[in-house]
Amino acid sequence: MDAYLPYVLCLVLFCIGIYAVISKRNIIKIIIGVIIAEYAVNLFLILVAYKAGGRSPIFSRTQEILPEAMVDPLPHALVLTSIVIGLATTAFLIALAVRLYGKYGTFDISRMRELRG
């Protein structure tokens, strides 16, 4: 059971993020929800790469490290990419939030009623 605990916690974190997106009415809180969900997925990606007792996947000049002893390096590269994408999305969402605040004078999404259904 202990071995699965990190994965379960990851899922819980993801659900917290989704919950924030669905239930909150403040734009900033919704954005924070998106970020939490995003980092839960990134964390999951890192967990997938983990190997018990694994070392960081970097070759060194002073030390001989076998590839077998390293954790899987591919997800690390992927997680970096996904963090960058997350950065772009977050920056865009925040810029939108600022502009929306300028138009409506509030962050409350239930008071923005330009669009229906």
Partner: peptide, 11 residues
């Protein structure tokens, strides 16, 4: 309208 639609779409 555009900003609101875009926010919804982006989230």
């Amino acid at each position: 309208r555009e900003l609101e639609a875009s926010f919804k779409y982006a989230v």
